[in-house]
């Protein structure tokens, strides 16, 4: 009914977090270069920046939500006119919609985030491998 709204909300929050973290990293990076912190720069080259990792999550959430939203339009659950969600017009339907958002919607957001965390775990093991860290520094 409107389960896609929960991952969409998470996507909005995470995009804001990514933008904020990105600007913070930029300021930090410029400060490091100003102070000639080359050792720190070489160390960070072996690791994937967290903002890039966050981008994987936001892309997964935005992409999934967009395709799911299309499915809801297909089934006539989302309309281009107010109140946009057909279930929102009827109190009984609205209650069912909210319950679906609380169960399926939250489960969707949790599953996508859990898969992203697993990916981060795998990436972390790659980052710890000396050969990969060395080749990343060579590049």
């Amino acid at each position: 009914m409107a389960c896609f709204l929960v991952p969409t909300a998470e996507a909005i929050v995470m995009t804001v977090v990514r933008k904020a973290a990105g600007s913070k990293n930029e300021i930090g990076g410029q400060a490091a270069i100003k102070h000639g912190d080359h050792f720190h720069a070489a160390d960070s080259a072996a690791k994937i920046p967290f903002t890039r990792k966050l981008k994987w999550l936001t892309n997964m959430l935005w992409g999934g939500s967009a395709l799911l939203a299309f499915e809801h339009v297909w089934h006539g659950e989302v309309t281009p006119w107010f109140p946009f969600l057909t279930a929102a017009g009827d109190p009984e339907e609205a209650a069912i919609m909210l319950r679906e958002m609380a169960t399926s919607g939250v489960a969707m957001a949790v599953l996508v985030t859990a898969v992203w965390l697993i990916i981060l775990g795998v990436v972390k093991t790659y980052e710890k491998r000396p050969s990969i860290a060395q080749s990343a520094q060579e590049v």
Binding site: N59, G63, G64, S65, L68, S104, M108, V112
Partner: peptide, 21 residues
């Protein structure tokens, strides 16, 4: 292709929950 990849995986995970429901 990475963008397309995560987009399809994100949607697949969400539909998996839908299928379980």
């Amino acid at each position: 292709l990475g963008i397309l990849c995560v987009m399809f995986w994100g949607a697949s995970l969400m539909w998996l929950i839908d299928a379980v429901a």
